[in-house]
Design a binder for these strands. Structure first.
Length: 744
DNA sequence: GACCTGCTGATTTTT
DNA sequence: TCAGCAGGTC
């Protein structure tokens, strides 16, 4: 009786502020369910309420499995559930990223797949380095085939659950055959290193379940309720695992939005969500179509854009929110000016009473970031870059972590290679080659080989001594892996390696920074131990290898956020500035681009637009420095896909007289390194541009169009273009080398 | 073995 | 432009 009362109370709390569709999604707990959750439709609220509901009706937390793509999403989910139910229950839910949950299971069941539980997890950089090692062993030159390409081929094979035999069988072209060879060796190398790359965490999970009936039964039984977030981004391997786990009870709930699928290039298969009903014929579909985030203007724009894609689930997103401001479109002459323009809007918004933290600047590629950083810094606007070089990816951090990896997993040859000569120990390429050869001949790990350094005849005396010393050092500190060691113990180890000394001697700003970073890392380990009573160094390494520091970035402080659109997924901001809207940049274009890749670019734009709550600025530049050269850019096709009535175009820079224009131009290039060697700027900037002596304001004649006035000059040399307003036909953009304009 | 120089090729990156 | 590399020199 009492129990029932509590349940009702819980339910009231759970169903508060949910609309009818959301309630239906929360309550449908038996059988397959697809929730198509449009942008801003309260998806996270539904997921967390659903789990809270399961708990409130007496389901056990440890029979619930909730899979997300990011740690951040998992963390948010857990926190929000904890607010709805007893926190001690919330903790017991199996909620986490695909990779971290599977890593946890694989460590537990490692004996079933021929690993030991202390296996290393290789991130992309480690994996690339391992591929290079393997290519080197096979005598395959990196000129012959790009290791990055090899890596992406292998990764995509694993994501599609294509094993080495299948891959080898289907390899037809010479390059595919080479990759097959590398794939086979790479696979063996990882096993030998007792290591898995990110993709292996999925692949080995399938193998585990496929090849061990008891294990499969156990987990099928255990996870009675499965929930998958961002289902549109699952790849084949993830899809297969979910299918295996849900097979017996079919209580599978997937949530996603096909319009926001932006990871095709990483193996995500949009068909997983499009075909959910085929996979689960008795499934129910609930669409969450009411948007609580954005204005009508923003949603209309988003809708008009996505309409241009063919492949999608039908839905109509709507909102009760007001119309809101129109979208403002700006263009500038150079990418440098574009960044300054963005800073200008930010200051304008700030003056209108917004906080910096309300504003985000999006770009398509990371390379664009620097211009905005500079522009914001010179305007004293505080900013935060999301997704920049992660703390854990810094060289010194990776080096120190490799020392730790080595004491945990002595078979980890990649970790060995990273640190054996860092600091220099007189073991260079030649010595290393000898060590590798001896390891191969005697089936030893590289570290173990060092123990027998004096048996390696080809090794120089000095290298023999160093190698043995290195072995002894690692061995001496092996005990650190087993216990919760203190800061000073860890510090002592890293000091003894000579790594700190190397940095201390340099005494540069950079080296002092690096020392601080290492100290910060050791502090971080301490904190981890404080929060995890039974955790050891290996647990710490696992945690950080599956964490990016985006997860920890504090968006709450009052700073403008700079990020790529991919990083923006799942976030929202009152004001969003989307930059670089130029054909070829956004959408990014390549000549051999697949039609589905083009649709993905459009979805990416859709994601960008739907991050905004109140106001959007779109910007593009007429010229842009890419790969060291200045290129002419054309306006993105996406801009034309937004109805004109939703946009205010502002091309003020076109209308300014040529004195102002010249000034801004000079300013632009004074700040561009590539032009800074030009000490005396000619008064007439068109001379600066190239061979032509035309300038803005000149009256010219054209063979076909007749008389006109130059309003804009862009590009350099062969690429130089003029915008001319002709009396007969209006504004035309012409290449000077073809147009043969005559100055009057 | 360590350091210098000249060539090449380049998206997005939840884990 | 710029990082990452191979290949040469000390």
């Amino acid at each position: 009786m009492l129990k029932l009362q509590i349940t009702n109370e819980d339910n009231n709390k759970i169903f508060q502020n949910l609309n009818n569709d959301q309630i239906a999604a929360v309550k449908h707990i038996n059988g397959p369910l697809l929730i198509v959750a449009g942008a801003g439709s309260g998806k996270t609220k539904v997921i967390t309420s659903r789990i809270a509901y399961l708990l409130s009706i007496g389901k056990r937390p440890d029979e619930i499995l909730a899979l997300t793509f990011t740690n951040k999403a998992a963390k948010e989910m857990k926190e929000r559930i904890a607010r709805l139910v007893e926190p001690e229950k919330a903790i017991k839910i199996w909620a986490g990223t695909f990779h971290s949950i599977f890593a946890r299971i694989l460590r537990k069941e490692s004996h079933l797949i021929n690993y030991t539980s202390n296996f290393s997890i290789y991130d992309q950089e480690d994996s690339l380095s391992a591929i290079k090692t393997v290519m080197n062993n096979l005598g395959i030159n990196i000129q012959q085939i790009n290791p990055n390409f090899v890596q992406s081929r292998i990764s995509s094979a694993k994501n599609r659950f294509i094993d080495i035999y299948q891959f080898e069988r289907s390899a037809e072209s010479p390059s595919e055959k080479i990759i097959a060879k590398i794939y086979i060796e790479y696979d063996a190398y990882l096993k030998k290193n007792n290591a898995m790359d990110f993709d292996d965490l999925l692949v080995n999970m399938i193998k585990l379940l496929d090849n061990n009936k008891d294990c499969l039964n156990y987990y099928q039984n255990k996870f009675k309720y499965i929930l998958v977030d961002e289902y549109q981004d699952t790849n084949r391997a993830q899809y297969l695992i979910i299918k295996l786990l849900a097979k017996s009870h079919q209580n599978i709930c997937v949530v996603g939005d096909d319009a926001q699928s932006i990871y095709r290039w990483r193996g995500a298969d949009i068909h997983n969500i499009l075909d959910f009903q085929k996979d689960y014929p008795y499934s129910k579909i609930i669409k969450l179509e009411q948007n609580y985030r954005s204005t009508k203007t923003i949603l209309n724009a988003a809708d008009s854009i996505i309409k241009n894609n063919r492949n999608q689930l039908s839905k109509k997103i709507w909102t009760n929110n007001p119309d809101g401001d129109k979208i403002e479109l700006y263009s500038t002459f150079s990418d440098y000016e574009e960044a300054n323009k963005a800073a200008e809007y930010i200051l304008k918004e700030k003056n209108n009473g917004r906080n910096y933290g309300d504003i985000a600047v999006f770009f398509r590629t990371n390379a664009q970031s620097l211009l905005f950083e500079n522009a914001l810094r010179s305007n004293q606007i505080p900013y935060i870059i999301i997704g920049s070089l992660s703390f854990y990816k810094r060289k010194e951090i990776k080096d120190v972590l490799s020392y730790f990896r080595l004491i945990i997993n002595p078979n980890d040859n990649e970790a060995f290679l990273r640190v054996i000569n860092e600091p220099p120990r007189g073991i260079g390429l030649t010595s290393l080659r000898n060590i590798k050869q001896y390891a191969l001949d005697n089936n030893l790990s590289f570290l173990e080989t060092c123990k027998y350094a004096f048996n390696i005849n080809d090794l120089q005396k000095k290298a023999q001594v160093s190698a043995l010393e290195f072995y002894n050092l690692i061995n001496e500190y092996k005990y650190l892996a087993e216990k919760q060691s203190s800061f000073s113990e860890l510090y002592e180890f890293i000091s003894k390696t000579g790594y700190l000394n190397l940095l201390q001697e340099l005494q540069t700003d950079e080296s002092l920074d690096r020392i601080q970073n290492i100290e910060q890392l050791l502090n971080d380990i301490q904190r981890f131990y404080e929060n995890n009573e039974n955790g050891n160094l290996s647990d710490y390494l696992q945690q950080i290898s599956l964490t990016s520091d985006i997860d920890n970035k504090d968006l709450s402080s009052d700073r403008v956020s700079l990020m790529t659109i991919h990083s923006a997924k799942g976030l929202e901001f009152p004001v969003v500035i989307i930059t670089g809207l130029e054909q070829g940049l956004f959408p990014l274009e390549r000549s051999d681009m697949h039609y589905e890749e083009k649709e993905e670019e459009r979805r990416l734009f859709y994601v960008a637009i739907t991050r905004a709550k109140e106001k959007i600025y779109l910007t593009y530049s007429e010229t842009r420095s890419r790969f060291g050269a200045v290129q002419n850019q054309n306006k993105s096709q996406f801009i034309n896909e937004i109805p004109k009535e939703l946009i205010i175009s502002n091309f003020e820079s076109y209308n300014k007289d040529n004195i102002t224009k010249t000034k801004t131009y000079k300013k632009t290039f004074e700040n561009h390194n590539e032009y800074s060697q030009i000490s005396n700027y000619p008064d007439n900037y068109s001379q600066l541009l190239g061979q032509s002596d035309l300038k803005i304001g000149d009256i010219v004649t054209h063979q076909q169009f007749g008389k006109g006035k130059i309003v804009q000059l862009t590009g350099f040399g062969q690429q130089q273009k003029a915008d001319v307003v002709f009396e007969s036909v209006g504004k035309k953009s012409l290449y000077l080398k073809f147009a043969k304009l005559q100055k009057i």
